[in-house]
Simulated assay, not measured.
Amino acid sequence: MSKIAVNELSMLLVEPSDTQQKIIVNKLKQQGLTDIVTASTMEEAKDIIGKHPRDLIASAMYFDNGTALDLLKQVRKSEYPDTPFMLVTSEVKTAHLEEFKQSGVIALLPKPFTAEHLSSAIENTIDLLSSDEMDLDYFDVKEIRVLLVDDSRLARNHIRRVLNNLGLEKVTEAIDGQQAIEYINEEMFDLVVTDFNMPEVDGRGLTKYIREQSQQSHIPVLMVTSESNESHLANIEQDGVNALCDKPFEPKFVKQVLYKLLNE
Rank of each mutant, 00 (worst) to 15 (best):
P84F: 05
L9E: 06
A174P: 15
G50D: 09
A5F: 03
D55R: 04
Q20F: 04
R145C: 08
M198D: 01
E187G: 01
S78E: 14
E91T: 04
V257T: 04
D64G: 10
P53L: 05
T194G: 12
L206A: 04
V241E: 02
L233T: 03
Q216A: 12
P16G: 05
D150P: 01
I4A: 08
S152F: 00
H52D: 10
F113S: 03
N65F: 08
T125D: 10
K142N: 14
L191S: 05
N124T: 15
A60D: 01
P81W: 01
K260S: 11
T89W: 03
A58S: 12
E182G: 03
F85M: 02
T67L: 00
S17G: 04
Y209P: 05
Y183S: 12
I144M: 09
H96T: 00
L148S: 13
P251L: 09
V257G: 01
L108V: 00
N263I: 03
G177F: 15
Q216D: 09
L261C: 05
E264R: 10
D64H: 06
L233W: 15
N7W: 06
N185S: 11
L109T: 03
M42L: 13
D176A: 03
K208Q: 14
H218W: 14
H96C: 02
T194P: 15
P199R: 11
D132P: 06
Y62G: 00
M11L: 14
E187Q: 15
I219C: 02
I48R: 09
D135C: 02
L147W: 05
V92Q: 07
E44T: 02
Q238P: 03
P16I: 00
D82S: 04
V224I: 12
Q21W: 11
L129A: 11
P16F: 00
D176N: 08
A58K: 07
L28G: 13
A5C: 10
L262M: 11
L71P: 01
V146I: 15
D202L: 08
R161N: 11
K93V: 13
L261Y: 01
K255Y: 01
K170Q: 15
L28A: 11
H232I: 00
E200K: 14
K3L: 09
G50Q: 07
G240W: 05
K22A: 06
A115R: 14
V6W: 02
L109D: 10
V92I: 09
G240Y: 09
R54W: 12
E8L: 11
S231M: 13
P110H: 06
M223E: 03
E187L: 12
I126S: 05
Q31K: 15
L206N: 07
V149W: 08
S130F: 02
